[in-house]
Design a protein around this nucleic acid. Structure first.
Length: 664
RNA sequence: GCCCGGGUAGCUCAGACGGCAGAGCAAUUCACUCGUAAUGAAUAGGUCAGGAGUUCGAUUCUCCUCUCGGGCUCCA
């Protein structure tokens, strides 16, 4: 038999018989590897072990320890899910079922519009485990598009995928080339069109859990029928599965809606309506600290504070373009004195009005307006989510008006400013996203859009921030940079946004007098740093699991007198600490010491101070720090130093008095 | 808005083939005055989300509405 030559990852060449499959190749390397092998990569394309290798392939064996293997495993588990459902619901059809972060899903349509229930998940799970126990091998084969259509005659959604593939649209995947379609069969009763690769057989699977059922539009469009989606998670070991489920529990404990109630921060009374919150004293105090810090930083960073009303006449929103492009998200209008008023969904047009209020010169620029502006957006009822997504929220909104020449420096210093403030709140990891012109619903010339997009790209490069590009994800008036932060348990949250806008200045006829005496349109930069004060607060709650750092904690220390004899000392000490600017509470309630400590710990107060006979005599305190060991007989002065040290970096007197980079 | 699942005391949750609603914590009162995560006793607290229907009788069954959660879509 003729030999072919393949290249191994270490660069060495190996001769194997022509027609050898990946499995035979793996066996020729070593029996241990053959056992661990899931798929091979030939010329960068993962293929399953049953497929033949070709002469000249650069071959790599993917084992179950390889990150890519997890995807194969999840994809294979999705097939097992589909097999189980199709067997259990005769007449059911299926659409797409890809691997995703942490697991997989599969979309189905059940006969007569039937739906899944949670109880179904249990029986589907049981059937899936039977399929896995049967250790069915995954077998790959290829058909032409016509043959494929015939094979999938009972499954219209699959035929849509095939039609898309035949039309050259590979975005829906599961296709080889476009003329030929690959299929995977793992039993007499189940075949799925699929790009693969898969694990060699279903016996390799098993560490999975079906998580939930959900509705999902076919191909993600509201215009398409809604299918029944089943989500699952899958891992390569029992330990990893358990760790994942544990992570979910951990995240649930941090849920800001739960902690907001437990810590008495915010609530959502039914009487107000969905997505509308009231702030309780402790939540409001933290918010005030956040806002004060933000205001001070902005003041030092060369911003000027402005204010604007909550409603404005329709002409403003017509000029801005919001009524043309954003009306779906706006609250309905109010008729008054023969005019039509809308609650504001954005602050921008008001700041534009302030710019327009006088003749501007290039000497005035850049102008940086800042406002904590409440906006109202009619979010779909199914979209509201605690503080993260509400119908009324406060943007820490800034609009910068500058010349085209100033844009690069301004953007660069802006990004640096944003990251610096986020770091002060304890975030250290960032991920940026550059969003470009939307395919529909946008204004402005191509030339302006590409100039604006290049400007943002330059700022990202200057900041040395890694970014991904979201094609078509921009606002209707311009491209944008979004900055995601990563929280303490690794989740990403979208917060800051920087949007470049050549359009609004044009629509409102903004201008400044350039050095040459010509009237010139300024460039406008929209920027939110927290994004929304509400969402940022929600993220902070989850990031810190409610245990706010001392500078943000609503109560920084609670003093507990051991007995009545120590009450005076406790209150004197509290006055002394308050005089230094700290937030101190005394609990001399008629409760045992243990009870009061327990309550204080539940409130996640940074320091519990216990004072008794020893302390009254020596001028000391017993310090019980959050998450630390008790220290007895600490001199009061030492404790004050500790508080000062923990809070000084965010105290107003210590804040930077200029922008952190460029443009000074 | 669409699909699925919930809503019982301030909170966490039991409960009932349809027959006067239950616990723990919290609250209030009394006693206890206490050195590092729950002192004891007593009291009060609910139109079982709202409305309609079926029924002798509905918190329980059916329908509608509101609302919350998980998704889809969207988004700061």
């Amino acid at each position: 038999m003729a030999q072919i030559t393949v290249t191994l990852p270490d660069g060495s060449a190996k001769e194997i018989p022509d027609g050898s499959t990946g499995a035979e190749f793996a066996a020729s390397i070593g029996p241990g590897l053959a056992k661990a092998a899931l798929v091979v990569e030939a010329d960068g394309h993962a293929q399953d072990l049953a497929a033949p290798l070709h002469d000249g392939d650069a071959v790599r064996i993917v084992t179950d320890r390889d990150p890519a293997a997890l995807e194969h495993l999840r994809h294979s588990t999705a097939h097992v899910l589909a097999q189980a459902v199709l067997e259990m619901w005769p007449g059911a059809t299926f659409a797409g079922g890809p691997p995703i972060d942490d697991g997989f899903y599969y979309d189905f349509e059940l006969p007569n519009g039937a739906t899944f229930t949670d109880a179904d998940l249990d029986s589907i799970d049981a059937r899936m485990r039977e399929i896995i126990a049967a250790d069915q091998p995954f077998e790959r084969f290829e058909l032409s598009v016509d043959e494929g259509r015939a094979l999938m005659e009972a499954h219209p959604y699959k035929r849509v995928f095939m039609d898309l593939a035949a039309a050259g649209d590979a975005s829906d995947g599961e296709v080889d080339g476009g003329t030929t379609i690959s299929f995977y069969r793992n039993s007499d009763t189940f075949v799925d069109m699929c790009r693969g690769p898969h694990v060699p057989s279903t016996g390799r699977l098993g560490f999975f859990k079906l998580m939930r059922v959900a509705g999902a539009y076919f191909r993600g469009s509201e215009k398409n029928p809604m299918l029944q989606r089943i989500y699952g998670t899958a891992w390569s070991s029992k330990k990893e599965l358990a760790a994942y489920l544990n992570r979910l529990e951990e995240a649930a404990k941090r849920d800001h809606r739960k902690l907001a109630a437990e810590l008495d921060l915010v609530s959502w009374p039914e009487e107000l309506g969905p997505g509308l919150a009231v702030w309780h004293p402790k939540g409001a105090l933290i918010r005030k600290i956040m806002e004060d810090y933000s205001r001070t930083r902005h003041e030092h960073g060369g911003y000027e504070f402005v204010f604007s009303p909550h409603i404005a006449k329709s002409v403003l929103w017509e000029t801005s373009g919001h009524l043309d492009y954003y009306a779906d998200s706006m609250y309905p209008p109010m008729e008054m004195d023969g005019a039509t008023y809308y609650p504001k969904p954005m602050n921008c047009p008001f700041h534009v009005m302030i710019y327009k209020s006088s003749q501007r010169s290039y000497r005035d620029l850049p102008l940086r307006f800042f406002e904590l502006g409440a906006v109202y957006r009619y979010e779909l009822s199914g979209a509201v989510h605690g503080l993260m997504r509400s119908r009324g929220f406060t943007q820490d909104d800034s609009h910068i008006f500058c010349t085209r020449e100033q844009v690069p420096d301004e953007l660069a210093s802006l990004l640096a400013f944003v990251l610096d403030v986020l770091r002060a709140f304890g975030f250290t990891e960032f991920q940026a996203k550059l969003s470009t012109r939307p395919p529909e619903k946008s204004v402005g010339s191509d030339e302006l859009w590409s100039m604006a997009t290049d400007g943002l790209r330059g700022a990202l490069d200057a900041a040395g921030l890694e970014y991904v590009v979201d094609e078509g994800g921009g606002a209707f008036y311009g491209p944008k940079i979004d900055v995601d932060i990563r929280d303490a348990i690794g989740r990403a949250w979208q917060l800051s946004t920087i949007q470049l806008d050549f359009t609004l200045p044009d629509r409102f006829g903004l201008e400044y007098i350039a050095p040459d005496g010509q009237k010139t349109p300024p460039v406008m930069i929209h920027r939110a740093l927290f994004g929304s004060v509400e969402r940022f607060f929600g993220v902070l709650i989850e990031h810190y699991a409610g245990a706010f750092p001392t500078w943000l904690a609503p109560v920084q220390a609670r003093i507990l007198p051991v007995a009545e004899a120590h009450h005076d000392y406790a209150h004197d000490l509290a006055q002394q600490l308050r005089a230094k600017g700290f937030r101190i509470h005394v609990s001399d309630a008629d409760e045992t010491l243990g009870q009061r400590i327990r309550r204080s710990k539940g409130e996640k107060i940074p320091y519990v101070l216990v004072v008794g006979d020893d302390d009254v005599a020596a001028g000391t305190v017993g310090v019980n720090p959050r998450g630390g060991d008790v220290e007895r007989n600490v001199p009061v002065g030492d404790f004050v130093d500790r508080l000062i040290e923990e809070t000084s970096s965010t105290m107003v007197s210590e804040l930077p008095t200029s922008l952190p980079a460029a443009s000074a």
